Simulated scan of single mutants.
Amino acid sequence: MERIFITGIGTGIGKTFISAILAKALEADYWKPVQAGFEDGTDSEWVGNWLKDTGSVVHPEVYRLVKPASPHIAAREEGVTIDVKKICQQIPDINRTLLIEGAGGLLVPLNNSAFVADLIKELGAKVILVSRNYLGSINHSLLTARVCRDMQLPVIGWIFNDQYLDYEEEIVQWSNFPRIASIPYSENINGTFINAQAAAIRKQLKEFL
């Protein structure tokens, strides 16, 4: 089973949206072990809506926390401590690719000593970085790349989404991580769009894996 961890340069940059496209493209299962905040629904539920009538399975969270905050804060409010070892013990036992979505970025704290990047290392997963094009994303992208290098995380490459200015090639050059794909901006995210993007990137994505 290949494990691919989907992380990004911050919160609200499209990890869940990209995860749905990747699950379609790779016919992979999806797992978000830590969900913080679900008043408007969970990321697993959102992805699951687009994977109906496919062979992909959305696996349940290990931690499902009420407060939409940093996981360590949300857990603390419920008298819970997020245990990285417990997450690793509950990795779905499957014979297909598993996409694992993180919470926020690499240095989001899970507890008082472990960050999302530490979870990636414990899971033994490869990494796909998601960057959304906005003012400031060059800095956030390169900081993310620096953490990956410093922690020796096995990065597959970048997936860019949205539109602002054309600086994807510069992020690729400065980070020294390749671009896997660019997903265009759309005001209408629906099944047709997700299926089309999955089909468009399937071949090049598999070349990176």
Score class of each variant (00 low, 15 high):
residue 1 M to S: 10
residue 1 M to G: 11
residue 2 E to I: 14
residue 2 E to P: 15
residue 3 R to S: 13
residue 4 I to G: 04
residue 4 I to L: 15
residue 5 F to G: 07
residue 8 G to K: 06
residue 9 I to F: 09
residue 9 I to L: 04
residue 9 I to H: 09
residue 10 G to Y: 01
residue 12 G to T: 09
residue 13 I to A: 01
residue 16 T to R: 03
residue 17 F to P: 02
residue 20 A to M: 10
residue 23 A to V: 07
residue 23 A to I: 12
residue 26 L to K: 07
residue 26 L to Q: 09
residue 27 E to T: 10
residue 28 A to R: 10
residue 32 K to M: 09
residue 35 Q to Y: 07
residue 35 Q to M: 12
residue 36 A to I: 10
residue 41 G to M: 05
residue 41 G to A: 01
residue 41 G to N: 09
residue 47 V to R: 06
residue 49 N to W: 05
residue 50 W to A: 12
residue 50 W to Q: 07
residue 52 K to E: 15
residue 53 D to K: 14
residue 54 T to G: 13
residue 57 V to S: 08
residue 57 V to Y: 09
residue 58 V to A: 09
residue 58 V to Y: 09
residue 60 P to N: 05
residue 60 P to A: 08
residue 62 V to K: 13
residue 64 R to M: 09
residue 65 L to N: 08
residue 66 V to S: 11
residue 69 A to Y: 08
residue 72 H to A: 03
residue 72 H to P: 00
residue 75 A to Q: 05
residue 76 R to H: 11
residue 78 E to L: 08
residue 79 G to N: 07
residue 80 V to C: 08
residue 80 V to S: 02
residue 81 T to W: 10
residue 86 K to Y: 07
residue 86 K to T: 07
residue 91 I to C: 04
residue 94 I to Y: 05
residue 94 I to M: 06
residue 94 I to S: 14
residue 98 L to E: 05
residue 99 L to K: 03
residue 100 I to D: 03
residue 100 I to C: 01
residue 100 I to G: 07
residue 101 E to C: 03
residue 101 E to A: 01
residue 102 G to A: 11
residue 102 G to N: 10
residue 103 A to G: 05
residue 104 G to K: 09
residue 104 G to Q: 10
residue 105 G to H: 05
residue 105 G to A: 08
residue 107 L to C: 11
residue 108 V to W: 05
residue 109 P to Q: 13
residue 110 L to G: 06
residue 111 N to S: 13
residue 114 A to F: 15
residue 115 F to C: 01
residue 115 F to I: 08
residue 116 V to F: 15
residue 116 V to S: 05
residue 116 V to D: 06
residue 117 A to I: 01
residue 119 L to K: 06
residue 122 E to I: 11
residue 125 A to K: 06
residue 128 I to F: 02
residue 129 L to S: 04
residue 134 Y to A: 01
residue 135 L to R: 10
residue 135 L to V: 07
residue 136 G to S: 05
residue 138 I to F: 03
residue 138 I to S: 04
residue 142 L to F: 02
residue 143 L to K: 02
residue 148 C to W: 00
residue 150 D to T: 00
residue 152 Q to R: 14
residue 152 Q to C: 12
residue 154 P to T: 05
residue 156 I to Q: 03
residue 158 W to T: 00
residue 158 W to S: 00
residue 158 W to E: 04
residue 159 I to R: 05
residue 159 I to M: 06
residue 159 I to H: 02
residue 159 I to S: 02
residue 161 N to R: 11
residue 161 N to G: 02
residue 161 N to S: 05
residue 162 D to H: 12
residue 163 Q to F: 12
residue 163 Q to S: 13
residue 167 Y to D: 02
residue 169 E to A: 11
residue 172 V to H: 07
residue 172 V to Q: 03
residue 173 Q to D: 06
residue 173 Q to H: 12
residue 175 S to Y: 01
residue 177 F to L: 11
residue 180 I to W: 10
residue 182 S to R: 08
residue 182 S to H: 15
residue 182 S to N: 10
residue 186 S to I: 14
residue 188 N to F: 15
residue 190 N to T: 03
residue 196 A to M: 13
residue 196 A to T: 15
residue 200 A to Q: 14
residue 202 R to D: 06
residue 203 K to G: 04
residue 203 K to A: 15
residue 203 K to P: 00
residue 207 E to R: 13
residue 207 E to N: 14
residue 208 F to P: 00
